[in-house]
């Protein structure tokens, strides 16, 4: 009976220790999180959707590339990218560019790069972001081409 109680107590203690360890690990990454959050504040103040829409010209490849570039340097909730993407589409920007923009928004993180590199390693962060950037163009072209093939 006592052994069972002790085991339960020990288990509960171990869970608390695990949560405390997690809190400590998370806390050590907090300066990076805070830096990113402050950068996001600057980005949302200085980069407006109007500024983004004034740059697209109507050429498929260039627009797709630009879409990926803007998606990469932007950051935030995916909802924001859908809303901006939807509004850009209404303003006549090609679906190729908008798709690349929303895909790069969530898969490439220029703003988060310092955090990713510090925590997961520079080599990994660089390769992953570069690949995600290239793939955002491929995904945009593939998706829109296929969409056009469907009657």
């Amino acid at each position: 009976m006592n052994i069972g109680k002790n085991k339960k107590k020990e288990k509960r203690r171990n869970i608390f220790i695990s949560i405390y360890e997690a809190f400590k690990n998370f806390g050590s990454a907090f300066p990076i999180f805070l830096g990113i959050i402050l950068l996001l504040g600057l980005l949302r103040t200085y980069v407006s959707p109007q500024l983004i829409s004034s740059i697209f010209r109507g050429e498929i490849f260039v627009d797709t590339l630009l879409g990926s570039v803007f998606g990469s340097v932007s950051a935030g909730n995916a909802v924001t990218s859908y809303i901006i993407g939807g509004e850009l589409l209404k303003e006549g920007i090609s679906l190729f560019a908008v798709t690349a923009f929303i895909v790069a928004w969530v898969t490439v993180g220029v703003v988060q790069f310092p955090a990713e590199a510090a925590i997961l390693g520079k080599r990994f962060a660089f390769s992953r972001n570069l690949l995600s950037f290239i793939l955002s163009i491929a995904v945009a072209i593939g998706t829109v081409m296929m969409l056009r093939m469907i009657p």
Binding site: S18, A22, I37, L38, L40, G76
Partner: peptide, 22 residues
């Protein structure tokens, strides 16, 4: 804007810490 983001993230931070602990 940053303050709003931080406030919105606090519940997510708690969930992630609990998730890491578990």
């Amino acid at each position: 804007v940053s303050g709003n983001i931080l406030v919105n993230l606090i519940p997510v931070f708690i969930v992630v810490i609990l998730f890491m602990g578990i």
